[in-house]
C-alpha cells in the first residue's frame, strides 16, 4: 500500500519539476527579448522625437491644442444625447441645405428681396383690397404654396410636440418633476412647489417615488392561479372550473348552478372567439339569458363578477 502511494507522489513531483523548468525557460526568453529590443526602441524613440519636433515647428500641436479647446467647448455646450440626435438628423440637415441652395429656390428668394427693396412704391392695401387681390392667378398660386408650407410646418410641429411629450413621459420620475406635463400644469401654485425640493434631498425623493410606483398590495393567488390587483385571473388560460368555484365563493356566491355555468361557458367561448371580454349586453346575447337574469345571477356588479368567475380580463366599455 505505502509503496504504491510513494510511487504516486514521485510521479507528481516529476510533473511539477517539469512545469517549473518550462516557466523558467519562458522567463529567460522574455528577458532576452527585452535585452535585444532595448536598443531598437531607443533608436525608434529618437526618430520619433525628431519627427514630433518637426511637427511642432510646423504648428501641428498648437493647432491640436486649439482644436481640443474648441472640442471642450462643444462637449460642455452639448450633451451626448444632442450629438446622437445630430448624427441621426445629419441627412435631413444636408437635404435641407441642398434644397435651399437649389438655383430656382435662390432665384425666388432673390426676387422676394428685390420686392422688399422696391417696397416703397407698393400701395397700402386694406381688407377689401387683399380680398380683391386673391382673384389674381399669381396670388392664388402663392396662397396655395403658403398653405402647403403651413401644412408642412404644422405637421412638423405636431410631430416635434409628440416627440417631446414622449421623451418627457419616458424620463425618470425625478426629472419629470422639473417639466410639469400639460395635464398637471393647471396653473395652481402648489403644483410647482415640489420642483424646488428634489435637488435638496435626491435620495429621499427617489425612495418616495419608488414607493409610489410599488403596488399597494401583493398580487394574490387563488387555487394556485395568479390574480390581478382587481381580482381578475391574470392568465385566462389557467382557468379551471375549480378556480371559478373558488372565485365565486370569494365573491359571496355560495354555489354556481346550471345557469351560472351557462353564462360562464358562453363568456369563455366568446372570449376565445373575439379575444376580448364581453360586456353585459353581449353576455346576454351570447348566453341566451336576459340582462335581468344576469343581474339576478350576479347581484353585485354582474359584468365584473361574471368575468372574474369566467377567468377573462375586466370588460371594457360603458354598456
Amino acid at each position: 500500500m505505502s509503496e504504491r502511494s510513494d510511487g504516486a507522489i514521485e510521479q507528481k513531483l516529476e510533473a511539477l519539476s517539469a512545469q517549473v523548468s518550462t516557466l523558467v525557460d519562458h522567463q529567460r526568453r522574455r528577458d532576452e527579448l527585452f535585452f535585444e529590443f532595448a536598443p531598437i526602441l531607443k533608436e525608434m524613440m529618437a526618430a520619433a522625437t525628431d519627427e514630433l519636433d518637426e511637427l511642432d515647428r510646423r504648428g501641428y500641436f498648437k493647432f491640436g491644442r486649439e482644436m481640443l479647446n474648441a472640442l471642450d467647448n462643444v462637449v460642455q455646450g452639448y450633451s451626448a444625447g444632442d450629438v446622437a440626435a445630430l448624427a441621426a438628423s445629419i441627412v435631413g440637415i444636408l437635404d435641407t441645405v441642398r434644397a435651399l441652395t437649389q438655383p430656382h429656390v435662390l432665384k425666388v428668394v432673390a426676387q422676394a428681396g428685390e420686392l422688399v427693396e422696391r417696397g416703397d412704391s407698393a400701395r397700402p392695401v386694406g381688407l377689401l383690397g387683399s380680398v380683391r387681390a386673391t382673384r389674381e392667378e399669381d396670388v392664388q398660386r402663392g396662397i396655395a404654396v403658403m398653405l402647403d408650407v403651413l401644412r408642412a410646418l404644422g405637421k412638423g410641429a405636431e410631430q416635434a410636440d409628440r416627440r417631446a411629450r414622449m421623451h418627457r413621459h419616458l424620463a425618470p420620475r425625478s426629472q419629470r418633476r422639473g417639466h410639469p406635463s400639460p395635464r398637471t400644469s393647471t396653473g395652481k401654485p402648489e403644483i410647482t412647489k415640489p420642483t424646488a425640493k428634489p435637488t435638496a434631498k435626491p435620495a429621499t425623493t427617489g425612495a418616495v417615488s419608488a414607493a409610489a410606483h410599488a403596488p399597494p398590495k401583493e398580487a394574490r393567488t387563488i387555487a394556485g392561479a395568479a390574480l390581478t390587483q382587481e381580482g381578475f385571473l391574470a392568465d385566462s388560460q389557467q382557468w379551471t372550473p375549480a378556480i371559478a368555484v373558488a372565485i365565486a365563493h370569494e365573491l359571496g356566491i355560495a354555489k354556481l348552478d346550471d345557469r351560472h355555468w351557462q353564462l360562464v361557458d358562453a363568456i369563455r367561448a366568446d372570449y376565445d372567439e373575439t379575444g376580448s371580454s364581453p360586456n353585459i349586453r353581449r353576455m346576454a346575447k351570447v348566453s341566451g339569458l336576459s340582462t335581468r337574469d344576469i343581474y339576478a345571477l350576479f347581484p353585485n356588479a354582474p359584468g365584473k363578477c361574471a368575468a372574474k368567475i369566467a377567468g377573462v380580463p375586466k370588460p371594457v366599455g360603458c354598456i
Partner: peptide, 16 residues
C-alpha cells in the same frame, strides 16, 4: 355597437 335610446331604456330597466 352602442344601443339606441329605446334599447338603452330597455337595458336600464332590466338592469334594475
Amino acid at each position: 355597437d352602442l344601443p339606441g335610446p329605446r334599447e338603452m331604456l330597455e337595458i336600464l330597466e332590466e338592469s334594475g
